[in-house]
Simulated scan of single mutants.
Amino acid sequence: MSVKPLAFIPEHGVLVPERLLALAQGDSIRPVWVNGVGGVTFRMGEGTGRERYVKYAAAGTPESDFAREAARMEWAGRFSPVPEVLEQGADEQGSWLATRAMAGASAVDPVWVARPEQAARAIGAGLRALHDALPVEGCRFSWSVVDRLEGFEARIASGGSPADWGNGYSRFTVEQARKMLCTPPPIDKLVVCHGDACAPNTLLDRDGNFAGHVDLGAIGVADRWADLAVAAWSTEWNYGLGYERLVYEAYGIQPDAERIAYYRMLWDLT
Rank of each mutant, 00 (worst) to 15 (best):
M1R: 13
S2G: 02
V3C: 06
K4L: 12
L6I: 01
F8W: 14
G13D: 11
V14A: 02
V16W: 03
P17K: 00
R19Y: 01
A22D: 14
L23C: 01
D27G: 12
D27E: 15
S28L: 10
G36N: 15
V37T: 15
T41V: 14
R43M: 10
G45Y: 04
R50A: 10
R50E: 09
E51L: 06
R52K: 13
Y53P: 00
V54G: 00
Y56R: 05
G60Q: 08
G60F: 06
F66I: 00
E69C: 09
E69V: 09
R72H: 05
M73K: 02
W75P: 01
G77N: 05
G77F: 09
R78Q: 14
F79R: 04
E84D: 12
E84N: 12
V85T: 07
L86H: 01
Q88E: 09
S95C: 12
S95F: 05
S95W: 05
A101V: 05
A103C: 07
A105C: 13
D109T: 02
D109Q: 08
P110Q: 11
W112I: 04
W112M: 07
I123Y: 02
G124P: 02
R128K: 11
R128F: 02
A129C: 09
L130Y: 06
H131Q: 04
D132W: 05
L134R: 02
L134N: 02
P135H: 11
P135R: 08
C139W: 03
F141W: 08
W143Y: 15
S144E: 11
S144L: 08
L149S: 11
F152T: 03
A154D: 15
R155S: 14
R155K: 15
I156W: 10
A157R: 14
G159V: 01
G160W: 07
P162V: 03
P162W: 04
D164G: 07
W165Q: 04
S170A: 15
F172R: 03
T173C: 09
Q176I: 00
A177E: 00
R178G: 03
K179P: 00
C182P: 00
C182A: 15
T183A: 14
P186S: 07
V192M: 04
C193S: 12
A197R: 00
A197W: 01
C198N: 09
A199D: 01
A199F: 01
P200F: 06
P200Q: 06
T202Y: 05
L204V: 08
D205R: 02
R206E: 15
D207G: 12
G208R: 02
D215G: 04
D223R: 00
W225P: 00
L228D: 06
E236Y: 03
N238Q: 13
Y243F: 15
Y243R: 06
R245T: 07
R245N: 11
R245D: 07
P255L: 07
D256T: 08
D256I: 09
E258R: 15
E258T: 15
E258Q: 15
R259I: 07
R259L: 04
L266M: 13
W267Q: 13
D268S: 13
T270N: 10
